[in-house]
Nucleic acid binder design. Sequence first.
DNA 1: CTACCGGAACTTTTT
DNA 2: GTTCCGGTAG
Length: 691
Amino acid sequence: METAQRAPETIGTVLADLNSAQYAAVTHDDAPLLIVAGAGTGKTTTLASRVAWHISNGIDPRRILLLTFTRRASQEMTKRVDGILRRLRGDGARGPGGSAVWGGTFHAMGTRLLRLHGASIQLDPGFTIMDRGDSEDLMGVIRSQLGLARTDRRFPQKGTCMDIYSRCVNSQHPIGDVLRSSFPWCLEHEDDLKRLCADYVERKIETGVLDYDDILLYWLGLLEDPAAGAEVRKRFDYVLVDEFQDTNALQARIVQLLRPDGRGVTVVGDDAQSIYSFRAADVRNILDFPTLFDGVDVLPLEQNYRSTQQILDATNRVIAGASERLEKNLWTAREGGELPAVVSCHDEDEQTDFVIRRVLELRETGLQLKQQAVLFRATHHSLPLELELQRRNIPYKKYGGLKFTETAHVKDLGAILRLAENPRDLSAGLRVLTLLPGVGPATAQRLMEALTEGGGDFLTWADLPTPTPAAKFAWASFVPLMIDLTRPDPMDLSAQVHAVREMYAPLLERRYDNATARLRDLEQIERLAARFDDRLTMLADMALDPPAWAEDLAGPPVLDEDFLILSTMHSAKGLEWDAVYLIHAADGNMPSDMATGSVEEIEEERRLFYVGCTRAKDWLYVCFPLRYYKSPWNHTDAHGYAQLTRFIADGCRDAFREEAGGVRGERDTDEPADPAVSGAAIKTRLRAMWA
DNA sequence: CTACCGGAACTTTTT
DNA sequence: GTTCCGGTAG
């Protein structure tokens, strides 16, 4: 507990912990700055210190905009900044207004700015936000309304349509180019896709709804507007961007227009870790940053504080195969260590066995479960492992994959609140209405039209006869609820959620199994609602930050709780663990068969694999099953043989040691004969002696 | 027009 | 296992 009074420190002593490269980056002047931060080089420390540096120079924190990739990253950053500021003030207690910095994701900050300034570009600041699933649903509705659902020449599914649309917007390329480069199998539908996207756009405009991409688009629009742009620019002296390698064309343009001369702009990133091009992120943004402004300085951070020499050697070899890169020579002072291992397993079950066995062995030596992580390419890759962990009562937590805010019951509740907030919101309305028994797409459509004609007043519905006999009962409680939620004197937010819950509970029970668990989630949301100032803010947070909601819904963390981490490699970005297990590292999964169409795609897979490997501090296990039982959906006993990922097989296999995943024979050979023992390994063993 | 059934086709990564 | 489509009963 930091409650003791301490003497105030100077910024100089605080920065004394930094190495010279970090120090130079932190104290760099206001010229535009690109920090090329290799994996594990203290990027977060550096960026947080730079923010603190600005503040210690007398800059008002509210004039600093700090854009991060996830809220987890932004919280971490804010925590560090606050920590430094406390040291400077000399108080141990929590200081006031610590997080006055504008910090968050592009989407979260864009939303905040659009609420403040949207009116000046004819955007109703009361807009509601569709998450990815809502957008797909709307796309699906239009898709069938336009008659594109007929089956004779199968039209791309709503999710694919959404991908195509989003890709066009984010890359700012015409649909023809996008189809040719990324969705060649959809080329024959180009004209229909155009109609579909055009309609989708119209619907969003008519209904006062923004999707993820719109947030960036309107933000850019705000900046391009002479009057509004000037207002927004006036707010910030400093703009710092984390993970710049994963920004897209729109985001780069936004940064540029926020500070047209580049002064006060700092971006941090690692081109070797660019892994979001499927979301239209463009490595060129970081490679070409030096040409974005005049007088850009580039500072590399090359000392890795994370991994042992042995692991770093291996990961440097993995990335050496990449084509175009910003020059970096990562080195570490953490000499020695255990060679990372390539673990060949007979089949998937053996892989599961191996991981669990080794995880438990390391735990025996004192390494907590949460210091170990299992990483994989696709969310479903972890399913067998999850089953086995459950069976054996080993706690785990999974990042990436299905979010709680994407589960049907949470979405239903959110849609009811969204409809109350914005009665024109079509995706919310159709979702809510078709929840009522006896109401299908057609009736829902009709009711939404009536509501819109009635100016969005839910009394319109009260005057209507019951839409269909089957809906009688639900309709009688639903309409009064909506009227109640839109009263001029609103109840407090928890009470609103409570009211929604009361109406929705019987529908939920009728519709889904394990209703009790789902109802518990909704109770949890009722409690969470108290945190928010208003409904609009809560809904935006739900849409823009699903992971945080997943954590919150999982309940308050138990203090001494320990759990194994499971994560997609994408979600593992920016994190680190003592021991890392990459599973399914076989060609076909890594690189994924879906992503071997072009050299660029394969290169991105290589970087993804690199990101996975570089999460490891002391132990790295790259596992792959030799034998796959194919086609999980048709239950034949067909199987195929797999090979180790080409990213190791092609030329850096000697940076790894070989290990067999089976139990037989590897017991004795594997134990501590290894002469090179890292500091961490010694600590672990020391601890284990008294465990 | 909705609810439900069967067959067919599809399964990457996420703000 | 899922989603999507078309057919059919009420």
